[in-house]
Amino acid sequence: MSAPVPALEIIALQKYFGGLPATQDVSLSVMQGERRLMIGPNGAGKTTLFNQITGDFLPTSGAIKLFGRDITQLSLHQRAHLGISRTYQIITLFGKNTLEHNIVLSLLGLSPSRWNALRPLSHYGHLRAEARAMLDRVGLGGLADRRVSEIAYGEKRRVEIAMALAQKPRLLLLDEPLAGLSSEERASVKTFIAAIPRETTLVMIEHDMDTALELADTVTLLNFGKIIVDGTRDEVIRDQRTRMVYLGE
């Protein structure tokens, strides 16, 4: 018997912008069901790494595997169909549309119905019901008919997550899901992140260590586009190099 296939495997990934290295020889693997936290100072290359995993841009060299399948050259939308979903650090929603419609667009992304040009969207009752159920799950059921542009910032953060979760991803990438939230909001978002079933593998970038560390099984510390430390939560916290990155030499 061979070892179990990791949910996400990154092999010797390199990314240069012009001549500047943004990702340098990054290799890591995340097992199925794992909760991985990515930390590191601003500009450490965390979001750049996310963008390569989702396909926003292609790496200069190296490979990315999803459940053993090489996805390095696949486009953004193909990767979504293989089970990758993400949220954005900078909120990226459909401001003019209702919350429900935002989630419906997410559901449509993986549904063959998205190609149907002959049946009104309003006839897809099951999609709308599913979208509302999803909004209920993140505590926004009451706002389903409001436009995104009319709701509060903390609520938009939750729509971001609901949009990704609605796709029932096998690999979910959360880019600073707690950024800009009040402590109450953080607590509630933390609760439903914790409640995400273990079928979904989770990789999260977050600066709020207190909250995020509790959610994480394992931690990867990045700096200057390189992996500095990689291991279980307690190993990384105790590691001398973590202190060096955060406290300076």
């Binding site: 953004l76 929603l93 667009l105 449509l108 993986l110 002959l118 796709q167």
Partner: peptide
């Protein structure tokens, strides 16, 4: 009219407003 109010039409309007997000959601922009 049918076209723009259909599921496909909604995807189209999504690609107008947030093309990258639409791609990340699985839409072939």
């Amino acid at each position: 009219t049918m076209f723009v109010s259909s599921a496909f039409g909604s995807s189209l309007q999504g690609t107008r407003d947030q093309p990258l997000r639409m791609a990340a959601l699985g839409h072939n922009v």
